[in-house]
Amino acid sequence: MVLGRGVKKLDLVDMLLLAALVGLAIVWVAPIVWVIGLAFKPNDVLMRTTGGIFAPPFTGKNFRDILATSAVFGWMLNSFIVAIGQTFLTLAISTLAGYGFARTDFPGKRIAFILVIAGLAVPEQAIIVPLHTMFAEAHLHNTYFGLIAPRLAFPFGVFLMYQYFKGVPREIEEAAMLDNASRLKIFFRVVLPLTVPAQATLGIYTFLHAWNEYFWPLVSATKPEMYTLTIGLAATQTNFAQTEGIGFLMAQAVFAGLPILILYLFFQRHIVTAVAGGAGK
């Protein structure tokens, strides 16, 4: 264990630490395993007891019910459209702006940059009430654009790309400039290909954030057919008190959580660096 790189033998402290680690891991995994188990149990059994999830009877009825009745597919589609749209637009405008701030010069740049950096301190909650009124005036609620747009204003992505461009050697562009290449040509042919790692980081970060966003969709998407997955599931949770549907609720949670967990397992390494790298900046 790393606490003592010098120590080679597994001593008592090591074993205690390992036990603590395993214990914590169980706390992290157990609720998920349990919920997956419940999703395969008949509701009338769950009415009486939620123990013994590994013992029969099992049923696929909860999942069949989802396929037949639940709006979860529509919500998932909405979440996808919003998350993809937000990711794509964030990447485009952040990369352009990050490059503009890091590598070009123009009148007013300093003041614009200071403004944008100050914007990093503004939390979503500080502006959500007036923003909601503005979108209501413009009839943008319950539209994809209305769900996607607000997040584009937050400067995090610009700041991340700015940092990245600062680290790219200037000589590459200067050489291209000597060849009389136009500014745009340099940006698209020379600079953009270099930014793929940063794009991946920002892209994953933005996608996850958009997929899990709660407050804005809650107040903007008020029509059930415009719910994102997060909001749709929140709406069904109000039925939680009538416990006859626990199995169905759990199946829905499993169904909704699985795609993102599978994505996570596939892209684990990238997701981890993206989130850690993003927040560390």
């Binding site: 352009l96 702006a97 490059y99 503009g100 701030f101 590598r103 070009t104 010069d105 123009f106 009148p107 007013g108 740049k109 614009a112 200037r170 562009e173 200067e174 400039m177 500014r183 940006f187």
Partner: peptide
């Protein structure tokens, strides 16, 4: 890199 020109503001 390059000239200081207002055109560059188009990036941001």
């Amino acid at each position: 890199v390059g000239r200081r020109t207002a055109w560059n503001a188009l990036f941001i």
